[in-house]
Structure formats: structure tokens, C-alpha cells
Nucleic acid binder design. Structure first.
Lengths: 152, 152
DNA sequence: TTAGATGCAAAACTTTTGCATTGGT
DNA sequence: ACCAATGCAAAAGTTTTGCATCTAA
């Protein structure tokens, strides 16, 4: 993802907040920038620490409030790792799924969606949503891929 | 799942604990029975409340310790709902995925696995695991399915 | 008998709430 | 100027830890 895309995402997030009638504070702009640039998932503590660099007085509850609001808006998506809840900017463009690196938590999108392939389900069920993620190690983090295929 | 199957699962859980050299205490037997019978997911608090019926003196940290140990053993699987972390007995028989009812949290297995269908991924990735769940409402909980197809 | 499991109490950590102040619109 | 957002402090909730006691093997 290049800088241009990130900038778009940052402005998309700000625009989304603004369109809901929310005020664009420095902290929220900073939040938007942070998630637009992040390649992986961020914990509330990560976010707090990042924010504190620019805004030393930022409070923990403001971080939580904004994370919750942005999640409810659909701008952020939540994911529970073993270490706890983390957040990342939700892809707004189109439906797809992710490879998630278990070490650096970088995510890579792919287009294949199992719901298009799924055959008859075992019983009546009113389907609302689904999730499909693949976990493993990206080429930077995998000892198997490191030497051999990374530069192939 | 009939009573016979549940009993098998209960004994499987006890056997798994025993085979790891763990002692089979009354509390652990009770835990095993609880998860063997549960149709859906249980929060630590659910487990604590259930256990307290039989063992009024049971402590919260014992519940947490055993939930963690059983998860690490692979007997239980964890899942984060909006309300927080919950547990259920992991299906040991064979690989499959689940429909999860968003109201009663009942789960229904199905055999289709997207990993058998997936085409070439966008980049080198050392795959370790995956998750695929479908969320919605079961026939008992869905207003759409309630009248029409439930008894079909 | 004895190492492991439990209960208790307290600590650590995470997330939420109430309220006065600040700051975007 | 107005009202939403923030910072602060404290509360509420969740999970972990240390240690003496108990108990399954």
C-alpha cells in the first residue's frame, strides 16, 4: 500500500467521522492517520502509546471511546488475538478475506470467498455474516520462506 | 447430539486430562460434564456460576486456571463474542467448520472446508491454520425461519 | 507420602463512567 | 455561544499471582 493510498484512507476515515456529525479533533485526526498507516493490528495500548507521542496529555478513556465509536461506524474492525483485542482499518472497497501473519500481524487480502462455493448447508439457517481468515507467516517472518522463495 | 455422545465427550475430556498426568478432581469432572453437555459457548462467569451450584466454595481463579489449561491442551476452543471470551468443547473427531447462532450461540457443524477449494494465493505465505465460521440465526431463533421451514 | 490442585485474598490489568473543562463548529 | 469531546479520577470488571491448605494418585 503506497503513501497515496494511505492518505486516501486517512481522509476517508476523517470524512466518515465528519459525515456522521462528529467533530474532527486533533486526537481523532491523529487516530485516523495512525490506522491509515498501520499495516497490522493495533491494541488499545498500542494506540494510546502512539497517540501520546503527539498528544502527551491524551487519556486512555478517549482512546477507548474513539475506538468503540469507530468500530460501531464500521471504520475499524476488531480482532481478538491471544494477547487480546486489536483493531485495524476496515477495507471499505469490496468484500474480501485476509492472510494474517502470526508474527508481525501484517495482513494480505485475497479475493476468494468461500460463500460463493459453499454447497447445501446441513440445516435451515438464516445467514447474516461470515468470517474466513488464514493464519501463518508472511515471507518476511517465515523461516521456511526466508531464504528460498522470498526473492523468487 | 444425544446423551450417549455427550457422555463420550465427557469421558474423552476426563481421559485427556488424565493422560496428561493431571489429577481428576471433582471440580474438573464437573467442568468436563458441563462442557460435554453445553450446546453453545460459555463465558468464564457462566462456568463459575454452573460450578458453584455443585461446589459452592469453588473459586474464580480455579475456573480460570482450568479453562486456560484445557484450552492449551486443545480440549476447549476459545471464541470472542462481543460480550467477551467464551469457551466450548472442541470437536476432536475430524476437521470441520461451524454455523454459529448469534442469539442462542448454538453451533452446527458442516463439512465444507474452503482450504480445499482455494486457488493460488496472492503471495508467498507459510500457512499454519485457518478459521471459517458462518454467523446467523438457527431455525429456533430466526423470525424468518420460525414459521415457514422449521417443520418442513 | 507428596506433588499438584484448590481457596482465599490481594494485585494487576482492562475498560467504563461521572463530571468539570476545553475546543470545534 | 453551544454542545460535543476531552482529561481526570475513580469505579467496575476481568484475569492473574502468592501462599497456605487440602487431596488424588
Amino acid at each position: 500500500m503506497g503513501d497515496h493510498d494511505r492518505q486516501e484512507t486517512m481522509q476517508e476515515i476523517v470524512a466518515a467521522m465528519s459525515s456522521k456529525g462528529w467533530r474532527i479533533t486533533d486526537q481523532r485526526r491523529s487516530l485516523a492517520a495512525l490506522f491509515a498507516e498501520a499495516k497490522g493490528y493495533l491494541s488499545p495500548k498500542d494506540v494510546y502509546e502512539h497517540m501520546r507521542l503527539k498528544y502527551p496529555g491524551v487519556s486512555f478513556d478517549t482512546v477507548y471511546r474513539n475506538l468503540r465509536l469507530l468500530s460501531e461506524m464500521g471504520v475499524l474492525e476488531q480482532f481478538y488475538f491471544n494477547e487480546g483485542l486489536k483493531f485495524r482499518a476496515r477495507c471499505q472497497s469490496h468484500h474480501h478475506h485476509h492472510l494474517i501473519c502470526m508474527k508481525c500481524e501484517k495482513t494480505v487480502s485475497f479475493e476468494f470467498c468461500p460463500m460463493k462455493q459453499i454447497p447445501n448447508l446441513p440445516e435451515q439457517f438464516d445467514i447474516v455474516s461470515h468470517r474466513f481468515e488464514i493464519f501463518g507467516y508472511c515471507s518476511d517472518c517465515s523461516p521456511n520462506l526466508k531464504e528460498t522463495s522470498k526473492n523468487a
